[in-house]
Design a protein around this nucleic acid. Sequence first.
DNA 1: ACGATGATGAAC
DNA 2: TTCATCATCGTA
Length: 177
Amino acid sequence: MITYHKKMSILGKKFFEQPTLKVAKELLGKFLCTPKEKFMITEVEAYDGPKDKASHAYKGKTARNTPMFGPAGVWYVYFVYGMHNMLNIVVGSKNYPAAVLLRGLLSSPRAKLDGPAKLTKFLKIDRKFNGKKAVPKNNLWIEDLGVKIKKSQIKSSPRIGVQYAGEWAKKHYRFYL
DNA sequence: ACGATGATGAAC
DNA sequence: TTCATCATCGTA
């Protein structure tokens, strides 16, 4: 049972400009919103800065990762494995490449949303959203509905699928409830 | 365990 | 212009 404590507020640039790991942890318990539905975020991964070897931004700015170098609060959606879209929200200040990958949502009666490609498939999120601001006008945004997450509820682990990243592969940049 | 399936970035 | 690589999923 989810209880609501305060008025909803749409998360904007100010929230996403905070340090990457802080934003990643605080996104747990927030809601990914479309005009029709709202889903609580339950799993994320942080990709933090130009030195993060697991990040797309590690090799510098390219055509694909350009949104990561832009202002915070913008969607970064990319295609992998020939069939899956990944949804990230850009964080950190402009020219500091960082993003948080949304990996899981609280499942609805209609679908399990416990993987980064499952949620994008279910919500029909593809590269049309890449580079767009996370605001209601663009039909995809994030809200704080007042759900309180205790620190003890947040677990962490190394990120998934980044074994090539050396020391960076060991960092506990994955957070989940 | 592995195949599906295509964009990406770097080498040649 | 080719090639290895890839922040995965579903079926086995």
